[in-house]
């Protein structure tokens, strides 16, 4: 029954690791007072299309979708993607980021829903 033992220990260590991760995660949420930024989607456009956020700090971004259609907020540079259903809102945490420009876009409207975050 050696094999079952190995599996059991494996499973135990996995559970322990995930518990640790969860604790870690909870600790990190509680710690910082994160600045909040809001953007809106109207007629498949971002308003504001450009805005500034502070560098090296985690930021909470609330995206309001005023259109009846869903939109996917996405950015390769920010490594974020989130579907926001029509007439609702979504929250995305971003950062901490180095200073620079971080374009984002609405994946469902690549032509018009474009914007960028300027980190200073």
């Amino acid at each position: 029954m050696k094999f079952a033992n190995v599996l059991k220990t494996l499973r135990h260590s996995l559970v322990r690791a995930s518990c640790l991760l969860l604790l870690f995660a909870l600790a990190s949420t509680a710690s910082a007072q994160t600045p909040v930024f809001e953007i809106e989607i109207r007629e498949h456009l971002f308003f504001p299309a450009e805005f500034e956020i502070p560098a090296n700090q985690k930021v909470k971004l609330i995206i309001y979708n005023r259109d009846p259609t869903p939109e996917e907020f996405e950015s390769y540079e920010l490594n974020r993607e989130k579907v926001i259903v029509g007439n609702s809102q979504g929250v995305v945490f971003i950062g901490p980021l180095k200073p620079g420009e971080y374009p984002f876009f609405g994946e469902f409207n690549l032509k018009t829903a474009l914007g960028k975050i300027i980190v200073k």
Binding site: R42, E43, L45, K111, T112, L114
Partner: peptide, 9 residues
Amino acid sequence: SDRNFSGYR
């Protein structure tokens, strides 16, 4: 340039 105004791009 590409601009947003009047609810359109």
